[in-house]
Simulated assay, not measured.
Amino acid sequence: MRPSRTGFVASGRGSARPSRPGQLDPALSDQLSGGIDPQEINEMSHISAASLLDRVHHTQDPKIVERVLTLVDREGVDIIAELWSDADPDSLPGILWRLYMLRSWMRRDAEGISHLWRLGEPTDTAASAIAGVDPAPSAEDIARTADSILSGAFTGDFAVALERASAFCDVIARGMKASVRRAEGRQAPVGQTGQAKPGGEDGGRRKTQVLGSAASLNQTARDFLRGASLWRRSRLD
């Protein structure tokens, strides 16, 4: 196994507390760009994920938390994807990858997601309480929730953060399915024969894409729930 400095490392200056816990080791960047053994990447993914999580759990410095929270924003997604994106969903790097990608998506399309939430969760339910979102969130509410879920994973109860992420994904998946039903329920254009025209090829493709995204989100929700269960049993590594 490689030492923890192989992945995410401190700057190495000043106090023992790292000033940039999310900084990628330049040597690792060079290795990844040149191509290395998949087993070594797998080992690096587990070491870097555990190191990053452990480091933030043992600090009270809000600047460090902020740097970890915005890791993908600052470092870009490519190298992090090289490390974590192929990791099994039953592993810590696989779960962290999904959390970071969920946050990125929530912030990138906060307006659209707020609409999907209102479709999927029109009234307060257990999912609303678990995810921490009210029935009519604004885009700003979605962005704040995105940060809250990810920061909670690093500074609070990791399993609870995963349960929040799971509940959120489930509601958005329901919203996607509701949007398809709503589109199908709208009156279709009427042709010369007086018969309603179908949505056409484009409409069919759109429906397939949306339902495919909903199915993917449902699977991600299950991954988060399983991750929470494994974490509580000290089996997520």
Rank of each mutant, 00 (worst) to 15 (best):
P122V: 05
F154G: 07
V133S: 06
P135C: 12
D124S: 05
D109W: 11
R144T: 11
S148Y: 02
F158M: 11
G152V: 02
E140K: 08
R103W: 01
P135Y: 10
A136Y: 07
G156H: 02
W105C: 14
D147Y: 02
P137E: 05
L116N: 06
L102F: 07
L102K: 11
S148G: 10
I130A: 03
M101K: 11
H115G: 07
D157T: 11
A126L: 13
P137V: 04
D134V: 09
L150R: 03
G132Q: 05
A146S: 13
G132P: 02
S148F: 02
D147G: 08
T145W: 02
P122N: 09
A143F: 05
L102I: 13
E121A: 08
G132F: 01
R144E: 15
A136V: 13
D109M: 13
G156L: 00
S104L: 11
F158E: 04
L116S: 10
I113E: 05
M101S: 14
I142E: 08
S151L: 11
D141I: 08
A146M: 06
A146N: 03
L116G: 03
S128Q: 01
A110H: 09
I149M: 09
A131Y: 00
A131V: 02
R144I: 11
W117A: 04
L102S: 14
A136C: 12
Y100V: 13
I113L: 14
W105T: 15
S104H: 14
P135S: 10
R107H: 14
E111H: 14
D157V: 07
